[in-house]
Amino acid sequence: MQVNFYATLRPIVGSRTVEFDLGENITVKQLVDVVVTRFPRLREELLNADGNLYPHVHVFVNGRDAPYLPNGVETLIQPGDTIDIFPAVAGG
């Protein structure tokens, strides 16, 4: 599965998109665990001390921030889903 990274996360993973070899029936939370395992420097960027996503971090599944999906971070990722991970961003 491809995961897209943005802004200050890109220099950490080294590219715009990273391919992850995932099994079936993986949840968003499990995906994040895989991501921070492969890129340990991302752990402090994405997760608080309790291991939960910071409120300013966004993990989009098809453009929708995972915590707002009906099953939240327990949502099962489907084949073909677009996954985007953003750090805190704003401007205007």
């Binding site: 802004a7 200050t8 750090p87 805190a88 961003v89 704003a90 401007g91 205007g92």
Partner: peptide
């Protein structure tokens, strides 16, 4: 921070 590194166009 994203605003400092990329400017407003980080959005």
């Amino acid at each position: 921070g994203g605003l400092s590194v990329y400017g407003t166009n980080v959005l």
